[in-house]
Amino acid sequence: MAPILRITDLKKTYDGGFEALKGVSLDIEEGEILALLGPNGAGKTTLISTVCGITVPTSGTVTVGGHDIITDYRAARSQIGLVPQEINLEPFEKVWNTVRLTRGMFGKKRDDALLEDILRRLSLWDKKDTRIKELSGGMKRRVLIAKALSHEPRVLFLDEPTAGVDVELRKDMWEIVAELKKQGVTIILTTHYIEEAEAISDRVGVINGGQLLLVEEKKALMERMGQKQLTIELREPLSAVPEALAEFDLELGEEGQTLTYSYDTRKERTGITTLLSALSDNGIVLRDLVTRQSSLEEIFVGLVKEGAA
């Protein structure tokens, strides 16, 4: 099946001469959740804005459901829902009116039952006649989502949906995303929270400096890039790491009670066996062992450093 979204060598240079996208190519399959992970200024919003028609691409092509975003913009844009990064809403307007406006602007026939259903799913139904300025930040974000869903898009862009949102609301948002995925909506979300990408996406794209560094299945990414750490709890505390163990790059923990060994799961030999026998050769007695998979955060930091080097 052809990808629902195909971005080919997309470049964007802003009027001031700043090159915010340096040739991004990306295919997204229908029904998947892709997290675009990158620090501030990476080009995430620029990428989304260009696909959605808010900024004009300098070169490259984008198709949505096979429709080019420039030559066939009506068909392309009809399929896209956008939840912008900023809470851009008219403060004096009522929730219902603003959601209805979006549906109309996308050329869809009035359908109050559908809008009611969307508002209910987002727990906004009892707020439908409330003025937007009276809503909390989290509720406003939901209104933006309701607007984006009002015209039944096949692809939904969520630009940093949980930035500045407290933990509870973030969990809510993740549930909403999972629910939308069940309904078959393709979702592209940007975030600079690693745990967010880790928690809800199928694939992760890492973007920095206007370049897509990699796109991979989340699991594969973590396995491929995975650093693991082995923490060894000691029977007797050590005052320093013995000279004989220097080659293992061990880290002595608090009060000399633990030793931490980092190894790469990608390598054939992790060095664990050698380490353990070296420990007993040196008369060090173990009490317990713990291993820990490195988080996407560590992977990401590693990648950005690689990219900068």
């Binding site: 959605c52 028609g53 808010i54 913009y73 009506r74 068909a75 392309a76 844009r77 009809s78 896209i80 956008l82 912008p84 900023e86 851009n88 809403l89 008219e90 403060p91 406006l101 979006t102 602007m105 996308f106 050329g107 607007k147």
Partner: peptide
């Protein structure tokens, strides 16, 4: 001014 222009620009109009 308030940023809702994004909607006009991203709609199929």
């Amino acid at each position: 001014f308030i940023g809702t222009i994004y909607e006009l620009l991203s709609a199929p109009i």
